[in-house]
């Protein structure tokens, strides 16, 4: 019988404390009236007010959201296709090269991905800006999307799809009516993951972006280099809140589906 010992409990608690303490501090200090991190000057929302007046920051948020939505959608569509091919496609010609290209960006250092994409855009003569960042993010996050959908698809029983075909469905119809609804939670999770990664990326965006397409991480990075700034705490808290809500919503949706099934 498994039972956690005191040592087990302490290691898990310490691990979680280590993971969460910096995030909690950031949120708490975003409401600090004082500019100093070591001094608590009372509760205040002045940094949020300052944020609302910071037009450059707001522009960066808007750019980031648009890049995130478009690139995550592209990545999810392409990633789902790639997952279907890898799980159901059998041993087609070029499969090894294909799976290599799918998994490589997962562990590839970002500076290399950023530099290589930039060189592509330069040699194609594409002006750097909103679209080059979006295409780059779609490329990198498509790999993550593939892995998420692939895991779900691999555990989904292909016999159900076969049964649908035996009952007169076309292969495409069976996929759309049987398989797709079943892997839908994984597709949603893949989109969320791709969107979050895009929202978060600094390195690839810095290489592939141009004037007028400064993303939020790029803007934050240039501010962070100047030192700790409570306004950044406020942006961070908003981002953390947004992501937490998203993850919780995804979790609840999945639980409801699991309960119904």
């Amino acid at each position: 019988m498994r039972r956690p010992s005191t040592f087990n409990r302490v290691s898990v608690a310490a691990g979680l404390a280590f993971l969460y303490a910096p995030i909690v501090l950031l949120v708490v200090y975003s409401f600090n009236a004082s500019r100093l991190v070591t001094v608590w000057g009372g509760f205040s929302t002045r940094w949020y007010a300052a944020l609302l007046r910071d037009q450059q920051m707001l522009d960066a948020i808007w750019v980031t959201l648009r890049v995130g939505v478009i690139s995550a959608t592209l990545a999810t569509v392409l990633g789902t296709l790639a997952a279907v091919a890898l799980v159901r496609g059998g041993r087609f010609r070029g499969r090894t090269a294909f799976s290599g290209m799918v998994y490589a960006p997962l562990v590839m250092p970002e500076v290399i991905l950023g530099l290589s994409l930039l060189l592509l855009f330069v040699s194609l003569g594409l002006p750097r800006g909103f679209w080059t960042v979006t295409l780059s993010h779609a490329t990198v996050t498509l790999c993550y999307a593939t892995v998420v959908v692939q895991a779900r698809l691999a555990s989904f029983d292909g016999a159900l799809e076969e049964a649908a075909q035996d009952l007169g469905c076309s292969p495409a119809g069976a996929f759309l009516r049987v398989t797709l609804p079943n892997i839908a939670p994984a597709i949603a999770a893949a989109w969320m993951l791709a969107f979050t990664l895009s929202l978060d990326d600094l390195v690839i965006a810095s290489f592939t972006s141009g004037p007028g397409a400064t993303t939020l991480p790029m803007r934050l990075y240039s501010q962070v280099r100047l030192g700790v700034n409570p306004e950044i705490n406020a942006v961070s808290t908003l981002l953390i809140g947004l992501v937490t809500l998203g993850v919780l919503a995804a979790y609840l949706v999945q639980r409801r589906r699991a309960d119904r099934a």
């Binding site: 296709l81 496609g89 087609f92 292969p171």
Partner: peptide
């Protein structure tokens, strides 16, 4: 089914391998 690989394959060839 392997035909599904074509769009992501071309995409990765252009935006990952070629770079």
């Amino acid at each position: 089914t392997w035909l599904a690989a074509i769009p992501p394959y071309l995409w990765l060839a252009l935006f990952f391998a070629l770079p």
